[in-house]
Structure formats: C-alpha cells, structure tokens
Simulated scan of single mutants.
Amino acid sequence: MVSGQQKRILVIEDDEDIRTVVVTRPTRAGYDTSVAVDGKDGLRRFYGDRPDLVVLDIAMPVMDGIEATRLIKEGTGTGRIPVIAITATSKGHSEKDTRNLFDAYLKKPVSKNDLVAEMARFLDHNQDRVTVEQNTSPGSVKARESDQMPAPDLDRAQLAILPELVSRLEAVDSEWRDLCRTLTINDVEAFAGRMKDLGLEYNCQFLVDWAADLAEQAADFNLVSICAGLELFPDIVAQVKGLAGTEPL
C-alpha cells in the first residue's frame, strides 16, 4: 500500500463517457487524477507523473491495457505500482492470466462502490492531520478533542442509561476497526446509520451529529473525510463515558 500526502491516480481509458465516470470517483474522493486516451499515451503520462495507482481499460487502440501494464510491471522501480483493470472483455486473454497481471480486475459496468473499494485497498488513507484538514470542508468533521464537543443537557434519568450506551458502543469496536482498515462505503453507511439510531435512542445529540456527518461523507465517496470521521469514534465513546460518570447538577 502506497503512502504520502496527496495520492496521484492515472486513468487510461479510450471511451470518453466511461473515462469521465471513472475520473469523477477518485476526484470526489480527494485524489489528484490525470487521464490518458490509450496505452501509449498512458505510458508517457505514467513515466512523467509517476502515479501511486493506475486504473485502465484493457481494450484500447494504439496499445492495449495488457501491453501497457506489462511494460509498467517490467519497468525499473515501477513494478510495485498497483494497476486496476476495468474492462468488458479480456480480448482473448484468459481471466486467470489477466488476474495474474493486474493487481485488481473489475468488469464493466463497474459500480462506484466497487471502484472506490478497490482504490482503498491500494492507497493509504491514514494521512496526517494536516492533510486531513486540507482536504476536509469546514464543519464536515467534528472537532477531535472531546472537550470541544458541547455537553448535552441531560436529566438524571437520561444520564442513568448512558452506561448502557457505552456498552453498546464498545461492542462495535471490532467492527469500527475493520471499517478503518477496509473503508468499504456500504459498510460505513450502515455503521453510520446504526450509530445515528443509537444517538437518537439515548438522546445523545453529538453522537447523532457525528453519525450524520459520517453518512454524508460516505455518500460523497470522500475517503479522506471518511477516514477522519472514523478516527473520531474513540473520542465519541470517551465523551459518552465521561457523561455516564457525571452527576447532574
């Protein structure tokens, strides 16, 4: 998995309509994306830009994706750069050989969720705090420090049931850790929905707000913001624990 400040993705696709769709997903996810229209043009851009990930079609004019990928994999210092193939046909190549050549292989029509999930496998989303702040719109991620989150106005009965909420939040810790690793969009959306329901059930507004933000980030396929939002979960749990141990005035 590659790491760095801003990830670069090269999209090589001869069909303009498909190219636009494929480019839109990484761009919305916060990546620096460049395009090429065939394998030869793609190699020229590849050696000029040195991207962190290549997404290409197999069936292209001038030079197809098979030959372009072989040259990338055989190149000095470029063999480890992941290549994701997107195609409707392998043009006579066996699927086994195709899968052995490419790091990932998706058949058209490709769902946006599958595309983002495959990118997430090869790109490092544990970016430092500066990068997260630069790529996240104001207000889209709640403040990280728990003392910056406004304490809800809860009565004695509501405070009394917060230990139960703590237990239910702690019960999903392993699921949260898996989401931080996989960043699977559908699973993040489902997790956010359940956390919002918990917040509503226990009248915990900051949990509701955080979950709503996370769901919105997942809907936008913004992997940088999703990563930052998920990182706030331990702070959410910590604040609930703090409230659970607080006596009402």
Results as ranks from 00 to 15, higher is better:
residue 2 V to R: 13
residue 7 K to Y: 02
residue 7 K to Q: 10
residue 7 K to F: 03
residue 8 R to M: 12
residue 10 L to F: 08
residue 10 L to A: 10
residue 11 V to F: 03
residue 11 V to M: 08
residue 13 E to F: 09
residue 16 E to H: 07
residue 17 D to A: 15
residue 18 I to Q: 11
residue 26 P to F: 01
residue 27 T to D: 11
residue 28 R to V: 07
residue 36 A to G: 09
residue 38 D to L: 07
residue 41 D to R: 11
residue 43 L to S: 04
residue 47 Y to S: 10
residue 50 R to Y: 02
residue 53 L to W: 00
residue 55 V to P: 05
residue 57 D to R: 09
residue 58 I to F: 05
residue 61 P to W: 00
residue 61 P to C: 05
residue 67 E to F: 01
residue 69 T to L: 10
residue 71 L to W: 01
residue 72 I to Y: 04
residue 74 E to Q: 14
residue 75 G to W: 00
residue 76 T to P: 11
residue 79 G to P: 01
residue 79 G to Q: 05
residue 79 G to N: 09
residue 80 R to V: 06
residue 81 I to Q: 00
residue 85 A to Q: 10
residue 85 A to N: 13
residue 87 T to W: 05
residue 89 T to Y: 08
residue 93 H to R: 15
residue 94 S to I: 07
residue 94 S to Q: 09
residue 96 K to W: 00
residue 96 K to D: 12
residue 96 K to L: 12
residue 97 D to M: 09
residue 99 R to G: 05
residue 101 L to I: 05
residue 106 L to G: 07
residue 107 K to G: 09
residue 112 K to H: 13
residue 119 M to A: 12
residue 121 R to V: 12
residue 122 F to N: 06
residue 123 L to A: 08
residue 125 H to F: 13
residue 125 H to L: 14
residue 127 Q to C: 08
residue 132 V to Y: 04
residue 138 P to C: 07
residue 138 P to D: 02
residue 141 V to W: 02
residue 143 A to N: 11
residue 145 E to R: 15
residue 147 D to A: 13
residue 151 A to R: 14
residue 154 L to P: 06
residue 155 D to F: 04
residue 156 R to N: 01
residue 157 A to F: 02
residue 161 I to M: 12
residue 163 P to N: 07
residue 168 R to D: 12
residue 169 L to P: 06
residue 171 A to W: 05
residue 171 A to I: 09
residue 176 W to N: 10
residue 177 R to G: 01
residue 178 D to Q: 14
residue 179 L to N: 03
residue 183 L to R: 13
residue 184 T to G: 13
residue 186 N to V: 12
residue 188 V to N: 07
residue 188 V to S: 03
residue 188 V to F: 02
residue 192 A to I: 07
residue 193 G to W: 01
residue 194 R to P: 02
residue 195 M to D: 00
residue 195 M to G: 02
residue 197 D to Q: 13
residue 197 D to M: 14
residue 199 G to R: 03
residue 201 E to N: 11
residue 202 Y to Q: 08
residue 203 N to V: 14
residue 203 N to T: 14
residue 204 C to M: 15
residue 209 D to V: 14
residue 210 W to Y: 06
residue 214 L to I: 07
residue 214 L to Q: 06
residue 215 A to K: 13
residue 216 E to C: 05
residue 216 E to W: 00
residue 217 Q to Y: 00
residue 218 A to M: 08
residue 221 F to G: 01
residue 221 F to Y: 15
residue 224 V to C: 06
residue 227 C to G: 13
residue 227 C to W: 01
residue 228 A to F: 05
residue 228 A to Q: 02
residue 228 A to P: 01
residue 228 A to G: 15
residue 230 L to W: 00
residue 233 F to N: 04
residue 234 P to I: 02
residue 237 V to N: 05
residue 238 A to G: 06
residue 240 V to S: 04
residue 241 K to Q: 14
residue 242 G to N: 08
residue 243 L to P: 08
residue 247 E to T: 14
residue 248 P to C: 09
